[in-house]
Write a protein that binds this DNA or RNA. Structure first.
Length: 399
RNA sequence: GGAGGGGUGCCCGAGCGGCCAAAGGGGCCAGGCUGUAAACCUGGUGGGCGACAGCCCUUCGGAGGUUCGAAUCCUCCCCCCUCCA
């Protein structure tokens, strides 16, 4: 086992906050002495099915804990998801049914172990203990928290100020998450910076149950593709870890330059010093390296090389992608106004949209811009249609 | 339970009888410029028909009603917020 200092050095890379850091050191020391691994908790509510790079930041950190010999306690919040985490929300979260949650959890499980080490992960569902709580348990837990503290939270106070409704059950969420820590006896709880309140509440509730409080281990929130807001499915500014390599590469290339440093530190294993060297060079080269590193992590080196070559071909050399999806054109549609053709082939959602795009010069047939949506050009097998920057289709006329 | 305010397009928000498919902003899409970055400039942003004009259909919480005509007025219902209890 590595020394406490070595462990801390690894763990602290990219971290946002450790509260309180001194307690973490003590726990690590004790663990080293007794040989007893720390129990590092991570709670996830399977509210969506895909895991994105932002969440991967926390997962990757948890993986580091595992590699240092500690135990990851992964809590699937099947019960808490039916409450809905109010963190950062400007409105009440939809409450999911237990069924939906379990279905999402399936997908999660498949993706999550692309990052975590399955053999060193203890997976628990929190309905296991939350559903056993009695009313008097709940009253006891709730009595540990005050309304004032709850309302201090930025998300709640914002909503209160903006006259947005806050449902009473939303107050229960942090308390239940906190009780999870009691149930599994967590030494450390991981989470994004936005989880600070919830995780600190865990300390209070653990204390109330006579347990040693956990340490809050908080990772920064990864900024999403828009360069402004945190990466999140609901903002649509994310990259899923299961996305195809080329897609991933292309999306990384579209992030604002200013994000590169954070992304390098949080999404790759490139040593900090090397990151600085990379960033000192041409920004585009740096970004390609970033994209390459990320793709490699989830799809392997070969896929990373391929994506890079593809990117350079299509967007820098402006050549056609090597792999263009084919679309079958029924024979009778072979000669019809181009706008209708685009709709019929489902390359655009409506004819108005097709007209718009054509008028704007976004549509090309075999490399030639089409400007009149009424144009009737009989298409042949092998013709290439391009819509906008990134949408290509190879036509195949059916016999 | 009482009093008041409010529900508008993906989001915020103006409109309060016709000129409203609905100002303005954000987001998004496209074009330009580039490093497919950002910033910036331009245009677009319900659907359908059409020769750029123009026409038709669906939309302003829900259901009815008044009117030649309603997002705008009336009735009932649903939901949200504030204050008092």
């Amino acid at each position: 086992m590595k020394s406490v200092e070595e462990q801390l050095a690894i763990l602290k890379r990219g971290v946002a906050e450790i509260v309180p850091e001194e307690e973490l050191r003590q726990k690590l020391e004790r663990s080293l002495k007794t040989g007893e691994p720390l129990r590092v908790k991570l709670g996830i509510d399977p509210t969506a099915s895909d895991i994105h790079l932002g969440f991967a930041v926390v997962l990757r950190k948890l993986r580091q804990w595992q590699d240092l010999g500690h135990t990851a306690v992964l809590i699937i919040g099947d019960r808490t998801a039916t409450i809905g985490d109010p963190t950062g929300r400007s409105e009440t979260r939809p409450q999911l049914s237990l069924d939906e949650v379990r279905r999402n959890a399936e997908t999660y499980n498949q993706q999550i172990f692309r990052i975590l080490d399955r053999s060193r992960t203890e997976v628990r569902y929190n309905s296991e203990w939350l559903d056993k709580l009695t009313l008097s348990d709940l009253v006891f837990i709730a009595s540990q928290m005050t309304v004032a503290r709850m309302l201090e939270r930025d998300d709640f106070s914002q909503r209160f100020k903006n006259e947005q409704p806050i449902a009473l059950h939303e107050f229960l969420y942090p308390l239940m998450q906190a009780y999870d820590s009691v149930a599994v006896g967590a030494d450390v709880e991981m989470g994004g910076l936005d989880q600070k309140f919830n995780i600190l509440t865990g300390r209070d509730i653990q204390r109330a149950y006579g347990q040693e409080p956990q340490v809050a281990f908080l990772m920064p929130l990864l900024i999403g593709l828009d360069g402004v807001r945190k990466m999140s499915k609901s903002f649509g500014n994310y990259i899923g870890i299961a996305e195809p390599p080329e897609e991933m590469f292309g999306k990384v290339m579209r992030i604002p330059d200013a994000l590169m440093r954070q992304w390098f530190l949080l999404c790759t294993d490139v040593p900090e010093q090397e990151v600085d060297e990379i960033l000192a060079g041409h920004p585009m080269e740096a970004k390609k390296r970033l994209a390459w590193e990320i793709v490699r992590l989830y799809h392997g080196e070969e896929a990373a090389d391929r994506s890079r070559a593809e990117f350079e071909r299509v967007f820098q050399q402006r050549e056609l992608p090597s792999d263009i999806p084919t679309v079958t054109v029924p024979r009778e549609l072979q000669a019809m106004p181009i706008a209708d053709l685009l709709v019929a082939l489902e390359l655009v959602p409506s004819k108005n949209e097709a007209k718009r795009l054509i008028t704007e010069g976004a549509v090309e047939l075999n490399g030639e811009r089409i400007t009149d949506w009424r144009q009737v050009t009989p298409v042949r097998t092998g013709d290439i249609v391009r819509v906008g920057k990134r949408k290509f289709a190879k036509l195949v006329v059916s016999q």
